[in-house]
């Protein structure tokens, strides 16, 4: 197994030099439909980018693609130095990104702690990171031993976020992270994003939340019809 081999073949985390991601004419087909129809995109280290656009524009597919899920049918895509057209590279990449998807990726029959420990263990996360992540999202108290099926939507989301935090990804891919959260939870997400970029990670957020996002994300990307464009500067909008 050339499991540990990085795309640069030195076995170490590549320097997170710019660009974190470089996509050129990337086409991604889902069930015969080109969900991404030729994406050109450059992302730089430490950036927070906000993906906005109508439902079905391709935001979720783009996040999944950047996470190393799904195949590039045409064009090229490189994320953290991994060539997404190659299976081994995608596998390498997946361990270094954190994806918060619509699905919570939690097992209903396991408790909050069992879920978090399972995912963190698969990731070889530091146990200390797991404890602090659980504390950060208020999951170290009564909720700890509650099976996930008994949680509210917001509590599930917090559990997923705790899993993500324990992983310390280099690239954060958040699909509607504020959805279903109360004011306190939303504030937690905001702090999370600032902390992550502070630590040198790159964050991409797909969101319909036009109130929250502008303050968080200096860069705005418009997604429509399976392509991505940089939004015009705020002042230029008529």
């Amino acid at each position: 197994m050339s499991e540990a081999a990085s795309p640069s073949d030195d076995g170490t985390v590549p320097p997170v030099a710019s660009p974190v991601a470089r996509l050129r004419g990337a086409v991604c087909v889902l069930g015969g439909f080109p969900a991404l129809a030729g994406v050109d995109l450059d992302l730089h280290a430490g950036e927070v980018a906000w993906l906005r656009g109508p439902n079905g524009a391709g935001k979720t597919t783009l996040l999944r693609l950047l996470a190393g899920l799904g195949t590039v049918r045409q064009g090229s895509a490189e994320v953290l130095g991994a060539d997404l057209t190659r299976v081994a590279d995608r596998r390498w990449l997946r361990r270094r990104v954190g994806l918060l998807a619509h699905a919570t990726f939690l097992y209903d029959d396991l408790t909050v702690e069992e879920n978090i420990r399972f995912w963190a263990d698969l990731h070889r996360s530091d146990p200390g990171d797991v404890d602090s992540a659980m504390a950060r999202f208020g999951l170290d108290g009564r909720l700890r031993t509650v099976p996930v099926r008994g949680l509210s939507a917001g509590q599930r989301r917090r559990t997923s976020l705790a899993v993500l935090v324990a992983r310390r990804p280099l690239l954060w891919l958040l699909d509607e992270p504020h959805a279903g959260l109360d004011a306190e939870g939303r504030a937690m997400v905001d702090r999370l994003i600032t902390d992550a970029t502070g630590a040198g990670a790159t964050v991409i957020v797909a969101s319909h939340d036009a109130d929250h996002m502008p303050a968080l994300a200096p860069r705005v990307l418009d997604v429509a019809g399976g392509v991505v464009r940089d939004a015009p500067a705020p002042g230029a909008e008529s």
Binding site: L69, R91, R94, R95, A101, A103, L106, D108
Partner: peptide, 15 residues
Amino acid sequence: SDDGSLDALLVSGVH
């Protein structure tokens, strides 16, 4: 696949 966990397993870098 109930909750997309097969994806999650893959994203966790599990072979």
